Simulated scan of single mutants.
Amino acid sequence: MDYYRIGRVIKELRMQRSMTQKELSELICTQGQLSKIEKGEVIPNSSTLYELAGRLGVEISYIYEQASSERSDYVTETFKIIRQAIRDRDYEKVSEIIRAEKNNQLFQAPASRQFLTWHEGIIAYYTERNVERSLQLLQEATEITHQSSVYTERHCEILNSIGIIHFEEEQYDKAIIHFQKALDLLSQTPHEIDITIKIRILYNLSKACHLLKRYEKAIKYARQGIRACKRSEMMYLLGELYFQCASSMLAAGKEPSKVSQLLEQSLALFSLQEKHHFSEVVQQQLKMVNESTYMQVVPAQRKKES
């Protein structure tokens, strides 16, 4: 193994997560030691590497695998393509990639097999509508690299995927159980790495609670998601969270003016992001709320005038 690559992998993971050397090394080693590790000047001992991996949200085996693979860049790029295809709902493309790479020796390491199995479970549902096979594959994925004392970001993402399958099947109670477990485990990771995972889980929790008419909880989770977006200064799902919060507040009979304010914030974000379909939905909701408020206010004014 080229031990220089261990340092390079650690640095790449740290940069992907927008962490400073100080943040990564805190209570593990000195910043100077981490700098030498990343430059390949020193080899970290197993305990130091274990703690660094935990804070980076990966298994220690993942770092060794990436450092050992001469084609790790190819694996990483393939994963990026799969994730983008999932966001684009291009499930056929994901299916084709998995078929092509499943038996590729480069993808036989546990972390790589886990990633492919995870996405094989997703496409089993969306291309075949095979719920049983989908959940079986997703469960297998959680067990590939699972250790009783270590939960990685990916483990939480897979639990979120399981929750989504239950949500799609209108099994909202089961969905909430998995979303909540994913959220709880995410809080136990040594370092909150990718805030988008937390935001996504909170949004899913809010939607599921809303559909079960647990409006107060739906509002709570939506607000938590909004705060997470604001703290991290990102727009990821922020428009959706404003809309979800407004919808739950409206269903719960909250003050219309506050609902309107949330809808207007949602509309502004969707317009900025050119999410035209969402904008139309929000505009319809906003019109309904404003008309409802008008119908309540006008009779009251007439009563005063008389």
Rank of each mutant, 00 (worst) to 15 (best):
V42I: 15
T189Y: 03
E23P: 07
I81M: 10
R17I: 07
T78M: 08
E128K: 15
A268F: 06
E170F: 11
M1W: 05
Q283I: 07
M1Q: 07
A222T: 04
R200Q: 13
T30A: 04
Y125K: 05
K217G: 05
L269I: 14
Y74F: 11
I162P: 03
L135V: 08
S292T: 12
D2T: 08
E70H: 14
G32N: 09
T78A: 03
K207G: 06
E153L: 06
K254L: 09
L205T: 01
I165G: 05
Q244P: 04
S46P: 12
E70R: 14
I199V: 13
L237Y: 05
N204Y: 03
A141T: 01
F107I: 03
A100Q: 14
I6P: 03
K102L: 14
L267H: 04
S68M: 13
T127K: 14
I199A: 05
A252S: 15
L212I: 11
Q84K: 15
L159P: 00
K198N: 05
Y3D: 08
V75K: 00
R227Q: 10
M1P: 09
G239W: 01
T196M: 13
G32I: 07
A85R: 05
K303D: 10
H178N: 09
L138P: 02
V131L: 11
M15Y: 09
E169P: 03
S187F: 11
R129Y: 01
L183E: 02
R154D: 06
S69Y: 00
H210G: 11
Q224M: 15
Y172Q: 05
E51Q: 12
I201H: 01
R133L: 13
I10F: 01
M234H: 12
G163W: 00
L135N: 08
V131Q: 12
R154W: 00
S260C: 11
S112R: 15
Q188R: 14
S149C: 11
Q296C: 09
T152F: 02
L241F: 02
T48M: 15
Y215R: 10
Y91N: 10
S61K: 15
A100M: 10
R214P: 03
E305C: 08
A141H: 01
A109I: 04
L34H: 01
M15D: 11
I177W: 04
C156D: 01
Q296A: 13
S271W: 02
Q147K: 12
Q33T: 14
Q105T: 10
R154F: 08
Q16N: 14
Y172H: 09
M235S: 15
W118K: 03
S95R: 09
A53Q: 03
Q301N: 11
Q171C: 10
Q147P: 00
I226N: 00
T117I: 11
